[in-house]
Design a binder for these strands. Structure first.
Lengths: 201, 201, 201, 201
DNA sequence: AATGAATGAGCGTTCATTCAT
DNA sequence: GATGAATGAACGCTCATTCAT
């Protein structure tokens, strides 16, 4: 399995297109096979079952997605700069591939909990990247130091994810990357040393 | 239809239980009927079709959910107090009904886009509540005044939603309501008057 | 059962209308009840089951139909005059009640063989009327005398029935009664003393 | 679809048998599949849906039926000879295939109007054959020349159809083909040059 | 007599997966 | 390796009939 890389890739790409075009529930294996230019049975030479296709789509696409972000922040020093880059790359990559955005934000979420568990495994390295930024931010005293890391990471991820999902559902009518500074401001402010309540003095 | 409120409620409750126990895709109408203690056909005296059951579950449960939050903040004045109450009630209500939490955070999201559209309609009043708080916060100068309201609301909703989803997926091992102050702090900080970047050092 | 004649009639009339409007397969008992202005359950105080309604419709309507024809020919003497009257009344009555024509020619034929057997029982007196005309015609030497009565009756009935059915299916665009002389000519010719083959000239 | 002729034929034959044995309404797809020796799903590789099976049965069987009649009369000259052949072949073919006779005369008529419309389309060539004979008969002065062709055709078809239906309903107790001369005599007499009314005496 | 809420059996169709070629 | 015909389990919904009121 997964030997001949070419056909494997073809099927993955076909799956993304088919799911983006037809929606999760109307994406039959036979449609993916047709789009990939192979026979239905051939799919099963490269993937264990339909579930495996979906997870593999996520692995392939998210693997690149995460690596792209990780490598972009590698040479940066300040946690809040890293965070800004992370947000920028997160938005930029999804804005650049509409099909992928549709698939990851809307369609793949219709899969059953078992598949979603596995998808979460794939996301784990991304969460680690976030956790590291938070830790660094606390060390650098860029962020408050009493932060509950998993909680903060959930807040950041939830914020980014919801914004992208809304953008996809609004049929990508506006420019997602334009939102980066606002989002970054919101998050860094939220994480920085606490002011007195109510602020404005 | 929807005449005899009693049986209608019975079926709604049964649906929540069945979906929480079996997962969205394994929730057959016949299972719901059995759990509700009625015949399969009886379901269709109260609901147009299966889809209608699911949407009604959301309407009933989220209707209460939102109303509970809305009425709790009605008598409060400060936007950040309102926000704290909103977060508290949001978490508290889902923490109090584990089945409902599973259904809304995990299972109902597997529905097709048509159902999800309708679910989003039900959520709309909640988003309005949030928008109002943000507007008030700006007027009261509790929040910065140049905020992009829809964007901020997405960030708040995304934050809360992701935290609850994580809590549900972690099988509710910890106390969700305990997280309220941290989350509230994160958000109000994020929204309050901007400090110099990076703050402390 | 069949006690209070009023409601019984109401239901029969409603059934004809419902079947004519909706077609046989879309004529649910509940629709007939609604049109008749009674509760579903009331139907079963007057009829054993749905099948009984359909047969009763046929009994009521065809009873009149046949009686009308029988009484019209009673005072006539010549078999071929009787035949002409029979054809005329047959066409005239169905032309006068479009709903009935639709129901008897098209819709009731979609019933299963069991019901159709019973419908045929209702038709029997009509066939006897035809048989009597044929017998008389032979005695009067208006028709050939070696006729196979059941066969001839089938030919006559088949001829009339097919013509009416075609007229109904053509949505009654032309005048059915206008066809009487031609049909009568065809049949009496067919039944009269045999000429040499190829006939007249 | 309809590729591998063998299985297609198997299913058609199975459908005829199942319908003849069980009646139209008790002929489930699964029964047809079982009788044909294929899986339920296989049916749908060869037919669009159940309706398509029924129409195809009619197309296949009636196609042959009509072609058989058409080719038999092709080399004949006199219209009344052609008519006799038509009646003979009509009766002979249905007498030779009892299942087919049951299906076409009784069961398929229970189908809804949509299917019956399509069945009528299939019959159209047969009606054209009849129309041609009538036209020729008039040209050859074998028949009267003022005939209303569609009406005459309806009378002929109605006659034949009713005779076959009666024979089927009488459970085929007598020999259908024996009736040919009588029926032919009735029709040609009916169509030949008019004698004075009442004829013989 | 009349109601109408409740019942529950019954079936066409889809589609992931297999396997003979 | 590649094919694609064949498989068969699974389920939402309808509607004639009943029966407590």
């Amino acid at each position: 399995m997964k030997k001949q890389r070419l056909k494997y890739k073809q099927i993955i790409e076909a799956a993304v297109e088919v799911i983006a075009e037809n929606g999760y529930h109307a994406s039959q294996v036979s449609k993916i096979a047709k789009k990939a230019g192979v026979a239905d049975g051939t799919i099963y030479l490269y993937f264990k079952n339909k579930e495996d296709i979906l997870i593999s789509v996520f692995e392939e696409k998210m693997g690149q997605f995460i690596e792209q972000i990780a490598s972009s922040i590698r040479h940066q020093n300040r946690a809040d700069d890293k965070l800004e880059t992370l947000i920028d790359k997160h938005f930029r990559q999804l804005a650049a591939d509409h099909n992928l955005a549709i698939v990851t934000q809307l369609e793949l979420r219709q899969s059953n909990s078992e598949i979603r568990q596995k998808i979460n495994q794939v996301l784990k390295p991304y969460l680690v990247v976030m956790d590291d930024i938070i830790t660094e931010g606390m060390e650098q005293r860029v962020f408050r130091d009493e932060l509950n890391i998993p909680l903060v990471r959930q807040m950041i991820f939830g914020t980014l994810d919801e914004i992208v999902t809304n953008w996809v559902m609004k049929e990508q009518k506006y420019n997602l990357v334009d939102q980066v500074p606002l989002v970054h401001g919101f998050i860094t402010n939220g994480l920085s040393a606490q002011q007195e309540r109510g602020g404005a003095n």
